[in-house]
């Protein structure tokens, strides 16, 4: 019995892909300067680790607002408010972008494009722009977070809308209900758990990004960290890093537990 030989092009395909990948990788490495490392790099790395193990405990709580606890609280507040705001604004965007029929629809295409635009616009740039408007501080961070999160939540929400069972909606319409009835009695109850799930998920991400907004002066724990880094006070860097890691871990765990409970 003869084994059917695959055509030449289909046999060559994996090799061609490999060669292209190799060329891309070589090109990528050509752009990186691997020298230029500071002589003191090892020393500083050691100092950071020493700081992690001998953190500056006095910074944790000082009682007059310039401490780690209040910086972390501010970070959480930025993430929380930003996420809450955009979870509401994202809903109309989600209905705009949801592709609910097989045919090409101008509505859904423009909506999806707009959401992509919002999503890929760098959050830090947004924060800088809002700082120009409201001045440096946590408020600018809240605004940046609130606008930026719409992109991702709008996308996730619209996918949730696309995936629901359309039966209940049609039942309400055919029983004489109008579209508002269908929306409030069939669509929203079906998508709400998903919306809450995605909002919590986005909150986890928001906590991470809120902790870096301080780099541009938009509030949160990022600013004291940058100060400590440039002042080379490594024990301060250590305690702030520990604080951030702890905060992120606790929030991930909490949010994960709530999401598991919700989706049961």
């Amino acid at each position: 019995m003869m084994v059917q030989k695959r055509s030449l092009s289909s046999r060559l395909k994996p090799y061609a892909a490999g060669v292209i990948a190799l060329i891309i990788v070589i090109w990528a490495f050509s752009g990186i300067e691997f020298k230029g490392m500071k002589d003191s790099a090892g020393q500083i790395l050691g100092a950071i680790f020493a700081g992690l193990f001998n953190p500056d405990w006095s910074y944790v709580y000082s009682g007059h607002g310039e401490d780690l606890i209040s910086a972390l609280f501010e970070t959480l507040a930025i993430a929380f408010l930003g996420t809450i705001i955009s979870s509401f604004i994202a809903v109309p965007f989600a209905f705009w972008a949801a592709k609910t029929s097989k045919k090409f629809s101008v509505r859904s295409t423009t909506g999806k494009f707009l959401l992509t635009l919002i999503r890929v616009f760098p959050e830090l740039v947004l924060a800088i722009m809002f700082i120009k408007a409201v001045g440096p501080g946590a408020f600018a961070g809240v605004l940046a977070m609130g606008v930026h999160s719409i992109g991702m939540m709008g996308k996730l929400f619209s996918e949730a809308i696309e995936n629901i069972d359309r039966g209940p909606e049609e039942a309400i319409i055919s029983a004489g209900g109008n579209r508002l009835d269908a929306l409030s009695w069939a669509t929203l109850p079906a998508v709400l758990p998903e919306f809450i799930n995605f909002t919590l998920y986005r909150f986890e991400i928001a906590v991470r990004s809120a902790s870096i907004l301080g780099i541009v002066g938009a509030g949160g724990v990022g600013a004291p960290l940058i100060f400590a880094l440039s002042n080379r006070s490594w024990s301060r860097v250590g305690i702030i890093l520990i604080g951030i890691i702890l905060m992120v871990t606790v929030i991930d765990w909490l949010s994960g537990a709530i999401r598991k409970h919700l989706l049961k």
Binding site: K38, A41, I44, L45, I48, L124, R208, S209, S211, I212, I215, G222, L225, I226, L229, L241, I244, I245, V248, T249, D252
Partner: peptide, 14 residues
């Protein structure tokens, strides 16, 4: 759990 930008800030310092 360490955000990307914080890693970058640390590596720039190092």
């Amino acid at each position: 759990s360490i955000p990307q930008m914080l890693l970058a800030a640390l590596f720039v310092a190092v």
